[in-house]
Amino acid sequence: MYQEVILDHYKHPHGRGLRDGDAEVHHVNPTCGDEITLRVKYDGEQITDISYEGQGCSISQASASVLNDLLVGKELSEARKIQETFLELMQSKGRIEPDDDMEEVLEDAVAFAGVSKYPARVKCALLSWMAWKDATAQALGGAEAERKTA
């Protein structure tokens, strides 16, 4: 379960720390107390930054780091595809062996495939991804509302 990639991201997280954003969310995993505060920054539909602070297990912290790596700079539609693929992998209960196509989409995130075998830990891996989804809805929902009133 603890792939070298995961431990690397845990020990040396990418993009950690809170920076300016369009929306901020705070998500917790009540079963183990993992927490994340996450902000997203958009330029139109392009993600210009995902910043975060959190505490929790290596899986939840490494996953946030991988999320930052994968999604910053992407267009929303592409980011959604990556998020959905990661969700599918994490909900696979260990039954999906990532193939080349999946690896191309998920890059480092395929290292979490082993985590999907541990139901208690899947939520840890998904915490930051759910937070990102929520923050995005708030940021773009808000932006759309602003456009309408303008």
Binding site: Y2, C32, D34, G56, C57, I59, Y118, A120
Partner: peptide, 9 residues
């Protein structure tokens, strides 16, 4: 080290 990591290892 988070207890979940301790417990898992």
């Amino acid at each position: 080290i988070h207890p979940h990591d301790v417990g898992q290892v």
